[in-house]
Every structure is written in structure tokens, then in C-alpha cells.
Design a protein around this nucleic acid. Structure first.
Lengths: 152, 152
DNA sequence: ATCGCTGCAAAAATTTTGCAGGTAA
DNA sequence: TTACCTGCAAAATTTTTGCAGCGAT
């Protein structure tokens, strides 16, 4: 998992800012949730629930709790769900005010991830919506390839 | 599941042409495989393995056999795997000589699917590959929205 | 007669859920 | 105190795999 370069610059959010968003929605600030947010905060790339669980000091919380927390955080817009097509969901922290929409370039050999901040499809999205009479059209896009390290 | 419009026109392939491709790779033409190909042939949209199983006359073959067949057909390039982000794989028949690369517009209410034949990202793909030193870059892209029927 | 393929059953992996008890507010 | 959360256990899905026997070539 070599390429951890991220061309973007999502500034790390303070933990207090994150818990504040929870408090604002009158959700409780518990040990497991703080631990999860702390882990996501330090990780610039999408993580599976199992990875979050593994990164947690000595099973500090149950895996089921992580699943429930990610549902909540996703609903609140604090994390964004990504799907790399291997059948396991991945989550990334979303900056305050950001909608979290971006893409990734994933190495199919080592699973390394490069963040892609540009979005190329905004206008194509509206064209497709109009042409087919759809509303509220969004998209999911991920790139896959072989990273420089894995080519050698 | 209303919108079954497909702007594209993938001509249905004869079953004999399909089995011929199997024969050409010295794979066996069995009852289950013929049934699977027949079902896919009549379905212009991606199907889950369970849907294929359900469309099969009276459990004519085992679900595990369908999984194994789809692996084979995918490897042979006869079907293309799609991922609508709900954690279950979907498969669509690929025309002879076609690479199967295309996208979908999926209704998040009724799960209806519109096929999108254009691909907008060929050149962006090479730009991203070059910029990050990746090789063999591909992408997966799906659109989601609310179809005309479901808006009423 | 091969070797590949199938059905059945069991297992693996991810995700969801019920429930009783605990804790943040 | 009162909701909300958590851990534990069980269940629901999707997908994979082992094995013995059958069947296409």
C-alpha cells in the first residue's frame, strides 16, 4: 500500500470540532466515537470498518458499534462512503462545509490510494439528468490502475 | 423498476454464438450454462446472481453454479461486472468484440436502470494516469437519481 | 475415459439486529 | 432521570469452497 500521496489538501479537523458536531445534533460523545473519529482524522484515505477496528487500541470497542457509528456519521454527513468494488464499504472523514464528493485512484496490486479532488462530471451529470428526466442525479466514480511502485 | 429504456442498441446475440465462444475455449456447454446465457441474453440490464437464479425455471441449477459460471464468463470477457454500491454484484452480457465498458443511470427509489453508452472519461483517464505515474488505468462510473415515474 | 462441471453442504466474510445493561447529558 | 449507546450474541446476506458423483466431449 505505497502511494499515500494526496494531491489534495483537506486540513485535519480538530477532534473538538468533530465532537462539537455530534453535540450539536444532541448525540452523545462516547469513548468509542471519539476513538473512531480520532482514527479517521489521522487517516487521509478511506478505511473499512475492520481496519478501523484493527487500528483501535486493544478492541476498545465492538465491531458492531463501529458499524452503527458509521451509519450515524454518514447520515450526519460527517463521513463519506466509498466503494472500491471489492464488496466492503470504506469511509473517509468529510470536512466541515464540504460535501465530501471526490474520487480515488486505486492500485489494483497493492491497494494504495491517491485522492483525486477534481470532479469532471458536474455538467455531464446535468446533461444526463435532463436527457432522461431524472432528478437529483449524482455519481460514483473511481479509477483503478497500477501504481509506479508496483510496475517495477 | 420502471425505466428500462436503453438509449443504446446492443443487438441480442444468438445463443449459438454464445455457446460457440464457450466451445472455442474448450469449456463445456452444459444445461445450467445455457440457461444462464439465455436469461442474460433476454435481459438488457445488469442482474444479480440471485435474480438469475430466480429467473431460472424451478431451481434448474444451483446458486453456487451460477457464481462459478459468472466467474468463468467474466474471465472470458463474456460478461461485465457492475457495482451499484449496494453490496451485490451485477452482471451484463457483453457483445462479441465489445469490451463491455459502459455506465448506468440508476433510480434510487425503484432500482430502474437506464443504460448510458457514452464514455466521458477516456482522455481524463490518461491525464490521471500520466499525472500519477499509473499504468493500465480504468474506471468505474455509475449515475444515481430519481426517475420520472418516481418523481410523481 | 477424461476432466470439467454440478449439486449439496458447509464455511467464510460482511453487515444487521435484539436485548439487557450502562452512561452521557 | 432518561434517552441514547454499547457489548455480546445471533442472524441475515453474499460469496467461496470441499467433495463425491455425473456428464460433455
Amino acid at each position: 500500500m505505497k502511494p499515500s500521496t494526496h494531491a489534495h489538501s483537506r486540513p485535519p479537523q480538530a477532534l473538538s470540532a468533530l465532537t462539537g458536531r455530534l453535540r450539536g445534533q444532541s448525540r452523545k460523545i462516547t469513548g468509542p466515537r471519539q476513538a473512531i473519529l480520532e482514527i479517521l482524522r489521522r487517516h487521509p484515505h478511506p478505511m473499512t470498518n475492520r481496519e478501523i477496528f484493527a487500528a483501535m487500541p486493544k478492541g476498545r470497542c465492538d465491531l458492531a458499534t463501529i458499524y452503527r457509528a458509521m451509519h450515524l456519521l454518514e447520515e450526519m454527513g460527517m463521513v463519506q462512503r466509498f466503494d472500491f468494488g471489492d464488496g466492503t464499504a470504506r469511509f473517509e472523514l468529510v470536512g466541515e462545509g464540504d460535501d465530501g464528493h471526490h474520487h480515488h485512484l486505486v492500485c489494483t496490486r497493492c491497494a494504495g490510494v491517491v485522492e483525486i479532488d477534481e470532479c469532471f462530471l458536474r455538467e455531464i451529470e446535468s446533461r444526463i439528468a435532463a436527457r432522461n428526466g431524472f432528478k437529483a442525479v449524482t455519481h460514483k466514480l473511481e479509477f483503478f490502475g497500477i501504481c509506479p511502485e508496483c510496475q517495477r
